[in-house]
Amino acid sequence: MGPIQVKCSCGEDNCKEWAIIELQGVVEPQSQQPHLNLQNLRIGLLCRPSSQETYTLTIGYHELTGSKVTLKKPLLVLKKLKHYDEDESTSSKLSPSKVELDVIGIIRQKILFKTRPRALITSTKKV
C-alpha cells in the first residue's frame, strides 16, 4: 500500500487545534444507575484557575490537577468519508470503492492528569 492521501479542507495554517485530555484512570457512570444514557452528559468541568499552565478537571466529587504537555509527534484528527460509486452501488455496498480521509483537526498538545485526584468534600458532610 502506498502512502495514504489525506485531504485537508481547512488549509495548512488554520487547521483547528484540538487537545487531548489524558487521564490516569477511568470515567465511569455511577453504579446505581447502570442504564444511564451517556449521551450529552456532562463529564466534568475543565478550567485553568490561574495564568500558569495548570488545569483542574472536576469530575463528580474529584478534582484532578494536570498540566499541558506538548506532544512529541502531533496527531491528526481525521474523518473518514466513504464514497460509493454510483455504478456499483448495488453490488458492493459493503466495500466502498473510495475512502477519503479528511483532516478536521490537529493535536499538538495534551492536558495530562496523572496525579491522584483530590476529593472534594463539602464541609457539611457528616459521617
Binding site: L23, G25, V27, P29, L41, G44, G60, Y61, T122, K126
Partner: peptide, 25 residues
C-alpha cells in the same frame, strides 16, 4: 437543621452521575 443537612449531602452525591476512578500506576 442537621438532618436536613445530611439529606442535602446525600442529594449532592446523587447529583454526580459520572465518577472518576483513579488507576494506580
Amino acid at each position: 437543621v442537621d438532618s436536613s443537612k445530611e439529606k442535602l449531602a446525600g442529594a449532592e452525591k446523587d447529583g454526580h452521575r459520572l465518577l472518576f476512578k483513579f488507576n494506580e500506576g
